[in-house]
């Protein structure tokens, strides 16, 4: 069976079905047109955004982010970026649900330290529990700790999103063994969120068995964001197919690919 005849390999998050395993953010772009074009080039179907105070002096004619990522076309994923307490994260999600007319899929992130932007797991657990109780479908940003991942899954989170490295660092997958353990233990999709800097980082995450990769800065801060978006699309797909294909066994010594018989010298 080849790829063309096999059943479609979809990412399924709590019943939402996606053909793309690349999820993208909307920060750091030069303007909304670049945001729109990069998202389109990435092929992403899930797009995350932040919630902030409206500028009261704003010109009403100024375009709005939701106009370039229309909810009819994309699955919008409001996030709680910038929250340092469970309470603020829950408030943000409640406002996001109102903003999107009852949409309840959210990306929870509760930070613990402004320098590393590492998640505060205690507050994340508290927020996750409340949000699940309030009927939200919670995709949760977490550390690469397999125990934290398990607890968040047990609370009812619909996707576990461990960091590969600190947010915006572009350092890649710093602890592949832990990411592998989280994937092995999880019954919900594991999506690497944060840390990916290059297409090879994204491929590596997928080769580890992750269900997807969420990224923002790696695309938006590339010299050519549109080209990088297209590269990431292929990288995630390549990593997924490589994972499904199953890698060759590792050997410590050489093993000739050409037959040793029939030599004429």
């Amino acid at each position: 069976m080849n790829v063309a005849t096999s059943p479609p390999d979809c990412l399924i998050v709590h019943g939402h079905i996606f053909t793309s395993r690349l999820l993208v953010g909307t920060g750091h772009y030069a303007d909304l047109e670049q945001t729109r074009a990069a998202i389109e080039a990435s092929g992403a179907e899930v797009v995350t955004f932040a919630v902030r105070r409206s500028n009261l002096g704003q010109d009403a004619a100024q375009p709005n982010l939701l106009e370039v990522i229309p909810p009819e076309r994309y699955t919008l994923l409001p996030n709680t970026a910038g929250c340092y307490t469970a309470e603020d994260a829950v408030r943000t999600c409640l406002l996001a649900r109102e903003l999107l007319d009852g949409h309840d899929l959210v990306k929870l992130e509760v930070l613990g330290d402004p320098r590393t932007l590492y998640p505060d797991i205690g507050e994340t657990l508290k927020a996750a529990e409340r949000l699940v109780r309030e009927g939200f479908q919670v995709m949760v940003y977490t550390s690469d700790d397999p125990l934290a991942a398990r607890k968040l899954e047990d609370l009812g989170c619909v996707a576990i999103m461990p960091l590969g490295a600190p947010i915006g660092s572009g350092l890649g997958i710093r602890n592949p063994y832990n990411i592998g353990l989280i994937v092995e233990n999880a019954r919900v999709p594991v999506i690497v969120d944060a840390g990916v800097g290059t297409p090879s980082d994204a491929t590596f995450a997928m080769e580890l068995g992750c269900a997807g990769v969420l990224m923002n800065t790696a695309i938006a801060k590339a010299r050519d964001p549109l080209l990088m978006a297209a590269a990431m699309r292929k990288a995630v797909q390549a990593g997924r197919e490589g994972y499904l294909a199953g890698r060759m066994p590792r050997r410590s010594l050489g093993d000739a690919s050409s037959p040793l018989g029939g030599l004429f010298y």
């Binding site: 953010g25 909307t26 920060g27 995350t48 955004f49 919630v51 105070r53 409206s54 947010i167 923002n216």
Partner: peptide, 10 residues
């Protein structure tokens, strides 16, 4: 009163 909207972010 807080009035909020969607803005770019990751």
């Amino acid at each position: 009163l807080e009035l909020v909207h969607a803005i770019g972010g990751g």
